[in-house]
């Protein structure tokens, strides 16, 4: 097997001076191009793990390597966030004062692209997520699903090899959620992305290549996903089933 694109070894993370332990010796490997769903009950450490892989926070112990780079040795984690990973949150987290196009351009500042190229790239990304013609709309002028699609476009703005999605459909209705999941799957196929997706919804997880189940801060199960056998457990999953 080639070197995993994400490698998490013995990672511990606690909050509030150790009173809340989120991860207890977590291990995980994700291969390049793989689509992994992290599932488990609330508080099991799924989002914390995703945030550590995104370098939004540092672990108390353990090692995380992403795209061959040891995060604990990196001085500048901004570069990792700008170039290696694209993040999608449960809430879209767009800048309300900026237009859809400007929101997508925000990460591109770190690439040093000229304004015209930034605008063209944002236009293409918004077209790819089905929002052509909505470039000048600000988030309050978009529906929940449209906002989340802008967030997907923003996550891909710098063409990262890894997409990290934290409950990306959690705040959407079934139809909007289905659209966003279809979009992530399509973009993953087209761009060869590695995807790590956190979800509560086993139906949503059923779309992944592998489902990693977490409990109390560590992995309790990891199994390849048999898509043909997986039965949708929710209305969202049922409505979003795609034919391979």
């Amino acid at each position: 097997m080639s070197e995993p694109v994400i490698s998490v070894r013995g990672v511990r993370k606690s909050f509030e001076d150790g009173r809340i332990v989120a991860l207890r010796g977590m291990d995980l490997e994700v291969a390049e191009g793989e689509f992994v769903a992290l599932v488990g009950p609330s508080g099991c450490g799924k989002s914390t793990l995703l945030h550590l892989i995104a370098a939004l926070d540092r672990p108390d112990e353990g090692a995380i390597r992403v795209a061959g780079r040891a995060l604990e040795e990196a001085n500048d984690l901004s570069a990792h966030r700008a170039h290696e990973v694209g993040l999608i949150f449960q809430l879209h987290n767009l800048m309300p004062a900026l237009t859809a196009s400007e929101n997508v351009q925000v990460p591109m500042f770190e690439l040093g692209l000229p304004g015209r190229e930034r605008r063209e790239r944002a236009h293409a990304l918004l077209a790819a997520v089905g929002l052509e013609g909505r470039e000048r709309n600000r988030p309050p002028q978009l529906s929940g699903g449209e906002r989340q699609r802008v967030a997907v476009a923003r996550a891909l703005a710098n063409e990262p090899p890894i997409l990290l999605a934290d409950e990306p459909t959690g705040s959407l209705d079934s139809e909007a959620g289905a659209t966003v999941l279809d979009l992530i799957e399509r973009l993953r196929r087209e761009r060869g992305l590695t995807v790590v997706l956190v979800t509560h919804d086993t139906g949503v997880a059923a779309r992944a290549d592998r489902i990693v189940t977490m409990l109390d801060g560590h992995v309790v199960g990891s199994s390849p996903n048999d898509r043909s056998a997986a039965a949708p457990t929710t209305r969202l999953a049922a409505s979003t089933r795609v034919t391979p």
Partner: peptide, 16 residues
């Protein structure tokens, strides 16, 4: 604060 967090999350350097 939250917006600044988003900017940091999408890769903006502290100097920016």
């Amino acid at each position: 604060t939250r917006e600044i967090g988003i900017l940091r999350a999408v890769g903006w350097r502290g100097s920016r």
